[in-house]
Nucleic acid binder design. Sequence first.
DNA 1: TGTTGGCACTCTCTTGTTCCGAGTGCTAAT
DNA 2: ATTAGCACTCGGAACAAGAGAGTGCCAACA
Lengths: 364, 364
Amino acid sequence: MAISERKKKILAAVVEEYIRTAEPVGSKAIARRGELSCSPATIRNELAELVSLGYLEQPHTSAGRVPTPMGYRMYVNELMEKQKMSLEETEELNRRLNQKLQQLDDTIRDVSRLASQLTDYPALALTTQIAVTVKRFDLIYVDANNFIIVLMLSNNSVKSKLVHLPVSVDQELVKRLAALFNAGFTGMEDEKITPALIHATERAADDSLGLTAVISAFVLETLGEVKTPTAFLSGENRLLNQPEFRDPDKAHRLMSYLSGGGRILPASEALGGSDEVKVLIGPENVAEELKDSSVVIASFDAGDHTRCLIGVVGPTRMDYSAVAAKLSFLAAGLSRRLGGGEAPPEGMHNKLIIKEIDDGHERR
Amino acid sequence: MAISERKKKILAAVVEEYIRTAEPVGSKAIARRGELSCSPATIRNELAELVSLGYLEQPHTSAGRVPTPMGYRMYVNELMEKQKMSLEETEELNRRLNQKLQQLDDTIRDVSRLASQLTDYPALALTTQIAVTVKRFDLIYVDANNFIIVLMLSNNSVKSKLVHLPVSVDQELVKRLAALFNAGFTGMEDEKITPALIHATERAADDSLGLTAVISAFVLETLGEVKTPTAFLSGENRLLNQPEFRDPDKAHRLMSYLSGGGRILPASEALGGSDEVKVLIGPENVAEELKDSSVVIASFDAGDHTRCLIGVVGPTRMDYSAVAAKLSFLAAGLSRRLGGGEAPPEGMHNKLIIKEIDDGHERR
DNA sequence: TGTTGGCACTCTCTTGTTCCGAGTGCTAAT
DNA sequence: ATTAGCACTCGGAACAAGAGAGTGCCAACA
């Protein structure tokens, strides 16, 4: 199914022109670009063939041509020249990436926002933690009615909560519980934390107040929460920039699909995938609502069993080249910063940031 | 400027009918409602007067009448009968409120989502912490290169973070630091934490590793973060349900204004206000972008120096009555759960409160 | 005096028609 | 194989006519 070199050039021209103008592109327009040295008539012939091959279609008999999903696919796979971001863009992005980097869960929202700003399409960011366990327990005795639970998780994040009790506890019990939990619960995935285990702990601690239950509930909840994929959507409104979404109903449909966030997950087969940028064009999407939109997805490793995904949604007439380049860069940057090494990106790093904040007195 | 009883009835009828249908309402339509026992002709006369009084206007000579902002204002202030939510709605809402209640900062997003779902307009939720201090410090020594900072804040929330160090620390230093911070930093507002204080602490602790700096940076950052008003926007897309936003440009303008979240803050004069529901109609809004939309705002106390605000945005032709009722109820529910008492609403407490609300009835 | 029915008038919205231009497909010439 | 020319097609803009909804006003009525 090889097609001639010239057809490829023409196809690429159609795609690019259509991306630019959002209007069906005619033979003349292509000829005018000057890349091909032949007349509109010749191009017409080629166009006709491209149509019958399925790469293009015409909205009606006397209109220009528009790429089909297959045409876009061909373009993305073979024709598109991978864009690089300009130096300024690169720097700008790096600057912004450096600014906010603490723990992933805080960042994820910024990431989606960033991706959306960058590309001017709505963007979705999500993370999945494949497996988490508690690495360490601490219970801090505050006073007779309050204590703090501190969990350090296997991904080096720390979660904590104040527990308020209507009854008094003594410091001894709290200590005992901490020890027991450290002994019995560390390194366990949440499925392994059974009612039986909890019960055993309760007895061992001689806990008549139900603290064990409270604590283990928090543990389960926390592990569950961390493991639950979280999704953030930003810039939905940018959809309205696109002429194909000038129909409010269409826009609304897609937007409400998107704001139901996680449901892009069908596409998260990509989660396990490589670090490449994936493009899903129109009907290639599994979700019905996306059948005539396209999605560009970058996924990367964010350290300790965490997979992170950034997706950008737009019309099939999307600037694949630019978007892919930007996402790819973004993913690479985040991956470098978050993933890889064992050490969380803290410590020294912080110091630098500290200075910034101290001097600049300007937050935000 | 008193207007006759009948005029009021007619005005109310126009507003309600217009809210329902989104179409200019004519004399016949009002007559057909049957509330007034007079002919369309009479109503026409009254309508004409209401127009010249400024409560109504007509899009063009031979169209029905549409309320002006002044008309809406009159309606909201005097005519509107405060709706009550139906029993089912009340129950449903209570159920959902009970489901998720941990700390406010986690909830705030859910609150905006809830408000939006409830009203079918975009909703914005934001919190401001007037003043926060640290109530208690803990440093947990993990190993030579890691320790955990745990802050308990004056609003009873707990924040924690793992600090990773490229150098070794001994347990003694960590203990010393915890004691020093507890002595020197508790109860301080963030402005009071000066570089001088930090420096003094550093010397007192004999800390050559810069831990003091790291810790105090975290403190400042945390306090700053908590104090920074956070806003959450949900359901922007619901705007597209409204016929007045079928123009994508108009919709887009408003949506991007909204997604810049905090900028509703001009309206947050309301933050200090009472617990009443406020309605800002069209030009009453300060923000240029809202000049032809309306905002319904409920604000309430969420405990310890925290003021929380829920706002709903829609066209001026908004179902004020229903929205106000719902927001008011929502605010009351949250206020009861979060605010008031000294004790944080956690642990056992939740359960008790729940019962109370379930059995007892709503207070308007 | 306030209310009512009637009627001419105004203005928008819809539908149908026409016209224009962009772009095609085909054919014949190079 | 490429090109120029030409008739043809089709959508969209522009325009005209008709329908419908609603008004304003006047004259009659309680």
